[in-house]
Every structure is written in C-alpha cells, then in structure tokens.
C-alpha cells in the first residue's frame, strides 16, 4: 500500500517536472553576470582562469563557507565516530608490493597536488582538486599499513591554521578600509605564476584545509571500521 502511494506520488512528480520541462525555453536568456565577469575578470582580478576568479574573487565568501562545511562535517564526524578503543583489532598490513607502491606514490602525489594548487589561477584545477590529491597522498600509506595512525594533532592544527589564514587575509583587507575578502597585492601580469595578487595564497590555504580535512575524515572512518 505504501509502495503504491509512493509510486503514484512519483508519477505525479514526473508529470509535473515534464510540464515544467516543456515550458522552459533553453538557452534564450543570456548569462548576463557570466558575460560581465568574463569581460571584467582579467582586469579586476588578474587570474587567467576565470573560474578561479569567481571561486576566490567574486564569490570568495561562498568558498569560505564551503571550507567551513567540510570542517563542520569533519568535527561532527569525529564526534559521531568517537574514539577508537585501544584493544580493537587492526587489519593486517598489505604485502610488499602495495607497501612499496604506496611509498613510491607518496612523494609523487604530494608534488602533483601542490602543483595543481599553485597553478589554480592559471589552469584548470586549484585548491579543491589539489587538496583532494594531497589527502590521498596521506591516505594511501594508511591503506597499505592499516596499523599506522595519522597524527590527529597535526591534522587539526593544519586545518585550523589554514582556515584561519583564509579569514585573516579577508580581514586584512577590512583593516585596510576595504570590504571583507577583497583581493590584495594587485593583479600582476595575466598568466604569470606570480599574478592575481592574494589568490594563490588563498588557494594554498584552501588546498591545505581541504587536504587535511579529507585525510582526517578518511582516517577516522577507516579507524572506526576496524573496531568491529
């Protein structure tokens, strides 16, 4: 009975969506904000990658909140999963090939992650994408040797300081009399590594924060898994 009413509800919803779909006129409205940003971003922000200009410049506030959501999810996740009991059984270490592979991958992943973070204002990529790679760099060795523990103190210190420095850079602009999160240090030469003012610094903070947050979350989940 419940199934039937759910199916009917879905049918109605599908018809409703179909009706909206038919009435929509695709692609008729010009993206006014997007076009304005495309023509102004090179001059106003100085990042060759306009998506980065939006992520850290025009909508930097969203990005700050997004970092906060990750931080909150990690904090709440830590509270939910609780502390690991010291007597719990651990998974055995992986074989030699996986361990050696993990050791080999670690420096490569760190370098690639940092490269992607630091070139976020020039090429596709940036703090989020690079941060995920950094997180995997620290998580792959844990998969190879489940016995090793990630230092939660280090992780929480990095995530705290990286997040605080993002806000601090925003507050610096305020003390200079401008609005919160205004990009600092000029625009530089479009396309150069050292350009777009404070954006690369912000992306580095984002990358470190995302990396430490995700690595911490994954480590918590994997440690908790072993309790059963």
């Amino acid at each position: 009975m419940q199934r039937l009413s759910s199916a009917l509800f879905l049918l109605g919803l599908g018809l409703l969506i179909a009706a909206i779909f038919r009435g929509m006129e695709f692609g008729t409205v010009a993206p006014i904000v997007g076009q304005a940003i495309n023509s102004a971003a090179a001059e106003q922000v100085g990042a060759a990658n306009f998506v980065t200009a939006v992520v850290l410049g025009y909508r930097g506030f969203d990005t700050l909140l997004e970092l906060t959501i990750l931080f909150t999810a990690a904090t709440a996740g830590g509270m939910v999963l609780g502390k690991r009991s010291p007597t719990a059984k651990r998974d055995p270490d992986a074989g030699f090939i996986l361990q050696a592979g993990a050791d080999l991958l670690f420096p490569l992943l760190v370098i690639v992650g940092l490269y992607i973070i630091l070139h976020g204002h020039l090429t596709p990529g940036g703090g989020f994408q690079g941060g995920v790679i950094l997180a995997s760099a620290f998580f792959v060795p844990i998969l190879a040797r489940p016995g090793t523990r990630m230092s939660h103190t280090a992780v929480s210190t990095i995530e705290g300081l990286a997040g605080a420095s993002f806000i601090f850079i925003g507050l610096l602009a305020m003390f200079g009399g401008e609005a919160f999160l205004t990009p600092l240090m000029g625009q530089g030469e479009l396309g150069a590594l050292l350009s777009a003012g404070s954006l690369p610094v912000l992306y580095l903070a984002v990358g470190l924060k995302v990396g430490s947050e995700l690595a911490g979350l994954l480590a918590q989940l994997s440690e908790s898994e072993a309790v059963d």
């Binding site: 700050l64 995530e159 997040g163 605080a164 806000i167 507050l171």
Partner: peptide
C-alpha cells in the same frame, strides 16, 4: 557599516582556532 561581515567572520575564525587554542 563594513563591520557587518564581522558578524560572520569573527565566530568562524574563532571556531577554526578553538582546537589549537585548547592545546595551549
């Protein structure tokens, strides 16, 4: 009126730093 952003920024930066402060 610029201080409006502080209503959000101040508690956030404190929240980020609270675990670090606690260690001190």
């Amino acid at each position: 009126m610029n201080q409006l952003a502080l209503l959000v920024a101040l508690p956030l930066i404190t929240a980020f730093l609270l675990p670090v402060v606690n260690r001190v």
